[in-house]
Design a protein around this nucleic acid. Structure first.
Lengths: 118, 118
DNA sequence: TCCTGCTGCTTGGTAAACTGAGCGCCGAGG
DNA sequence: CCTCGGCGCTCAGTTTACCAAGCAGCAGGA
């Protein structure tokens, strides 16, 4: 529903975005994901469509669930985004490492970011 | 290599078993799964390792969940507990309502709260 | 200045996935 | 008997994933 921002949804761009979020260079990710940097470059730019094996390695290296990547790649589509969207708030609430105050702060920040999109 | 056989729980054998259970001929399944019968034959006999795309089609044709086949193929870990461990960080990363900058901000905040060592 | 080491990208090749056209075998009719 | 249609399998070829090596560009330090 709240798909206010999802400009491009290719698997490559998704990987690139996640890689940058994780502050990894192309070669770094390539190495931990056990693929060549050349190939990873092509994948991120949409030239090649990675196989599931590669996807799995990348998912591990990026610390996202393989299902997510598969869904993004179109290999799996029984994925409901709703659950993921609701995820942030729920994850924050359930996190045992956060104090109540911290949770409240993060929720406020999150709602500030995600909420007033309308 | 006198290993003409192996205790293979390969997807090939799994597919063949499922196909026979569904009372489908090789060509029938190949057609509904949109692959050539030649290829499907090779896959079932373990000569080729099918890509996720093929697996997805086969899963649909056999009316089994794609996850099951992926897990059999080793493309997916059978356990989804990874998702829970990832928790807040992954939820943030995957949220389509947050911009890249916003994600980074929230991750920084979260890490500050939850502990630098983690 | 010139290195040194990093970034991402391109090129050229190998191997693997995948297909089309055939093979031989078997059961059901004519 | 002899087609006919389906079965699974094989061979030859195309397409695509993937890697090794090397490119230019940029930052920083001697």
């Amino acid at each position: 529903m709240a798909k206010t921002n999802a400009p491009k949804n290719t698997i490559g761009e998704f990987i690139r975005a996640q890689r940058r979020l994780a502050k990894l260079s192309l070669r770094q990710l390539a190495q931990t994901a056990k693929v060549s940097n050349a190939y990873l470059s092509q994948v991120e730019r949409g030239i090649y469509k990675p196989s599931a094996k590669v996807l799995k390695h990348v998912a591990e290296a990026l610390q996202v669930s393989a299902e997510t990547l598969y869904a993004r790649a179109g290999f799996l589509d029984e994925d409901d985004e709703e659950r993921k969207e609701a995820g942030v708030e729920q994850a924050i609430r359930l996190d045992p490492r956060l104090s109540e105050d911290q949770k409240e702060t993060m929720l406020r920040v999150y709602r500030g970011f995600a909420g007033p999109a309308a």
